[in-house]
Design a protein around this nucleic acid. Sequence first.
DNA 1: CACTACACTTACCAAAATGTATGTACTTCC
DNA 2: GGAAGTACATACATTTTGGTAAGTGTAGTG
Lengths: 118, 118
Amino acid sequence: MNAVAGFAPNVLAAECPSRQVLKHLTSQWGVLVMLALRDGTQRFSALRRRIGGVSERMLAQTLQVLEADGLVLRVAYPVVPPHVDYALTPLGMAAAQRVAELTGWIEAHLPELLAARG
Amino acid sequence: MNAVAGFAPNVLAAECPSRQVLKHLTSQWGVLVMLALRDGTQRFSALRRRIGGVSERMLAQTLQVLEADGLVLRVAYPVVPPHVDYALTPLGMAAAQRVAELTGWIEAHLPELLAARG
DNA sequence: CACTACACTTACCAAAATGTATGTACTTCC
DNA sequence: GGAAGTACATACATTTTGGTAAGTGTAGTG
């Protein structure tokens, strides 16, 4: 399939660039941002209210990282007061689905998980 | 289904206990440990060699947290030199599957993800 | 008999993640 | 006209995370 194969990405390898993306996607706020954005385009402050406990600083930073990875799309309207929309790119939607499956599983099995704490 | 319903776990809520589990599973080394353990029971030092870049300290710590969550099973044989086996519990296997789907997706779409960096 | 392997633990330190507080420029609401 | 909302940036402090190095006790390996 890949004409320029010869290497296969592997997250278990320390030098593999996939590690970086993994870190971004599985960062504390990265996960929650992706999740929140699954419901569609939202503004910065809406996201902030939606994601419990996130600070402005962390939300801004996380969105920038995710945008740089091509997972999140940022659209700023040059108006006052500022208006900026955030949404998932097609790539981001695919990633967010996997993230949602993980978090969904956690939520569904939380009783069992908590029961493990003797 | 749930006789004692009245609350639904939601990772977007700051106080929800699911947040803790999420943090453990998506921690830098947590992800990789779960992934590595999918191949079956392994010993500490084998895991250490398998997971690129992990230190003894972090591996030990991560395994303990995952064990406390009921995701990883630790079996120590009282022999000298020490022999300890680590494996996924049934719960852990289910979780690891979701984790693997996420990392698998990242690995598969790494070219596109890296291309986003202009 | 020195050395390595095993599966850790502990102490110490550096680096990264994160929170808090503040400022911005302007507009709408009360 | 004072307050709140908007989407951040920036400086500073703190918390968390992670690395390094050393120690443990015994047994097999050269």
